[in-house]
Nucleic acid binder design. Structure first.
Lengths: 194, 194, 194, 194
DNA sequence: TATGAATGAGACTTCATTCAT
DNA sequence: TATGAATGAAGTCTCATTCAT
C-alpha cells in the first residue's frame, strides 16, 4: 500500500522532470519510465495513459499548494499580510519546485481540451482563494471597492508573469526578492490601508 | 511576388485557426493545408517545417501588433493615456483576432526551446514598449519611482490574465470592458498623477 | 493431487468461458485467471503457456466427448441407430456446453500451425469414429457403397454447420430438433436400408 | 483512379497471402505491407485499420464469388445441374484461390463480433442462393419436400468440410474430384429425380 | 509553382510471462 | 503452491516530410 504510493509518487516526480525538460508532447513515456527507474509498462499500472499523468500531476501538486496557501492565510490578521502570504507561498512553491513551475507555466495552457478541463478545477479554486482575500479586504474596508475579478486577474497575472520571467531569466535570480516591489504595486492598486 | 505573399498569408491564417482549435502538437500540417485550400506539399514551399509556421506566425502578428501599439502611444501626451493606449490596443487586437489570442496564450510558453527562443524576441520588444512608458512616466514624475520590471510584469500579467479569462469564459463577454477597472488598479499601483 | 486436478479443471472451465466470449487471441490470460479466481501466475503452474491452455482444453473435452460417442454407438445394433447416436451425442454435447461449442467452431481451424497440429489428432479420431460407422454400414449392406470420405465430410460438415447456425441464431432454438430433418437427409444420401 | 484501384487490390492480395500463412492475429500489418511492396503507412491510406482489411477482403471476394455462382446457376435448366453448378463454382474458386480458402475456413468464424458481423451478410447471401435452388427444386418436384434449412446446412457443411479436408491434406489432391461422390450423396439426400 | 500519394521513423500501449515474496 | 506487481518486447497506427508528376 505504502509501496504503491511510493511508486506512484516516483513516477510523478520523474514526469515533472521529464516534461519540464522537453514539454509534454515532446516527452516520451519511455523517458519518464527511465527517469523513474521503472519499465515502460509499469507506468500503465499507475496511470490510465500519458495524458492522465499530466492531469494527476497537476491536480496533486496544485491541491497540496492550495492547502498550503490556505494554511498561511489562516494565520494572518490583516489583508496586507494575507496578500503577502499568497505571494510568499506562490513564489516559494515555484522556487522550490522549479521543474513543476516550468510544467505549470508551459503546459497548463495546452489546448487539448481534455487536459485543460481536468486542470481547470484546481486553478479556479486558487482563483477563489485570491478573490476571497480581496472580498474580505473590501468588506473590512482595508482596500477600496475594486472590481474583484480585475483585481484577481492583476494579482495572479503579475505573480504568474514574475514566475515566467524568473524561469526565462538567463542569470539565476531569487524569485522571493520580487515580493516587496510587487506588493508595493498591489498595495497601491487596491488602495490598501495599512 | 504578390501572389506569393498572398498564399503565404493564406497559410498563416489557416494555421492560426487550426492551431487555435487543437493546439500546435495536436494539429496536423494536413489540417492547415486543408483550411488554406492548398496541398500539403505546398506548405513546404513557403515554410521550412511545422515549427517554422508557428514561429513565423508569431513574429509576423506580434510585429504588426507592436507597430500598432507604438503608433497609438505616439499620439498620446500623458502617461495615463499611454497606458490606456496599450490596454486598448492589447484587448482590441485580441478581441479582433480570437484565434490568434488562443495561440498566443497557449504557445508563447512553449517548452520546446527552439520555438521559445524564436518567439522570445518580439515578446521582449513588447515588454520594452511597456517599460519605456513606465520609465518615461517615472522621469516625468507622472508615476512613483516603482520597480520597472515589477510594474511591467504586473501590467502585462494582468492584461494577459484578462485575455485568458476572457477566452475561457463560457458566456461571451466584452474584453474591452475590462479596460476601466484594470486601469483603475494600474493607476493606484503606479501612484499615477492625473 | 485431487486438489491439483480441481484447480486445473477450474482454469480450463474459466478458459472456455473467456475464450468463447472474446476469441483466443483477444482473450487475456489475466481474464482467464480472474474468471478462475486465481492469480495470473498460478496459470503457469498448471499450463506451459497460453497456447497450451487451448490445446489441453480441446484435447480434454474432445477426448471425453469421443469416449461418450463410442459408448453410445456400442449400445446400438443398426447403422441407422448408430448414426442417430452420433448426431444426438454431438448436438447434445454442444447444447450442454455452449461456450465450448463456440470455442470449437472458432478455434479448431486455427491457422497457427502449432495449435492446429495439436488439435488435429482428437478431431481425426472423431472422423475415424464416423468413418467406422459408415464402413461397417457398407459391409453390412445397410448403406450403399458410398465414398467413405465424402460421406464423412457430409455428416460431419452438416452437423458442424447446424451447430454454427444454432450459435449464430438470434432467437434461441433447440439444436436437438435438427436431428430428425438432418437424419432424413443422411438416410437418403447413404441409401440407408432400415 | 485506376492506379488507386490497383494498389488497393495489391494490398488485398498481399493480405490474403499473409493472413493465410500466419492467421489474422498473428500476422503483422508490416508483413502485409512488405508482401505488397508498399510502406506500412500506405496500408492506412486504403484501409481504416487492420480489421478493415479482413472485412473488406472477405466482402470483396465473397461478393465476386456470389456473382459467379449466380451466373452459373442461371445457365442451368435442372435442379441437378444447379446443384452441380454450385459445387463446381465453390470447389473451383477455392482451388484457384488456395490462400483465400484458408482465410475463409479460418476467419469466417471469428469470435470478434465486429469482424463476424461485417462478414455475416455476404455469407447469408450465399446461403440464400443455395436455399433458393432447394426451394425451386421442391416446387418443381425435382426433390422431396425436405427441410430447407437442414438441406442447406448439409450442402454448405459438406462442401465446407471438403475444402477444409483438402487444405489440411498432406498430399496434394484435386478438390474438383470430390464433386461426383458428394453430389451422389446430395442426390440421395434430396431424393433427386433426374 | 503546385500536388498529394507515399514514406517510414517512432510513439503509445498491451499483455504474456516471470519471480521475489 | 500461490500471488500479482513488474517487466519489456512487440504491434498498430500517426503524421511530418518528400518527390515524381
Amino acid at each position: 500500500m505504502t509501496k504503491r504510493q511510493d511508486k506512484y509518487q516516483l513516477i510523478l516526480e520523474a514526469a515533472v522532470e521529464a516534461i519540464a525538460e522537453t514539454g509534454f508532447y515532446q516527452c516520451q513515456v519511455s523517458k519518464i519510465a527511465r527517469l523513474a527507474g521503472v519499465a515502460d509498462g509499469t507506468i500503465y499500472l499507475y496511470f490510465k495513459n500519458k495524458e492522465d499523468i499530466l492531469i494527476r500531476l497537476f491536480q496533486e501538486r496544485m491541491g497540496e499548494f492550495i492547502v498550503d496557501v490556505r494554511d498561511q492565510i489562516a494565520k494572518c490578521q490583516t489583508t496586507s499580510s494575507r496578500l503577502k502570504a499568497i505571494m510568499a507561498a506562490h513564489f516559494n512553491y515555484m522556487e522550490k519546485n522549479r521543474s513543476y513551475a516550468i510544467v505549470t507555466q508551459l503546459e497548463v495552457r495546452q489546448s487539448d481540451s481534455r487536459i485543460r478541463n481536468a486542470i481547470r478545477e484546481p486553478v479556479l479554486e486558487y482563483f477563489r482563494v485570491i478573490e476571497e482575500v480581496i472580498e474580505r479586504g473590501i468588506e473590512s474596508k482595508d482596500i477600496a471597492n475594486v472590481n474583484v475579478r480585475a483585481a484577481r486577474q492583476m494579482i495572479f497575472g503579475a505573480m504568474d508573469e514574475a514566475v515566467t520571467d524568473w524561469l526565462m531569466a538567463r542569470k539565476p535570480r531569487l524569485l522571493l526578492n520580487q515580493v516587496e516591489p510587487i506588493f508595493y504595486l498591489f498595495a497601491g492598486a487596491l488602495r490598501l490601508q495599512e
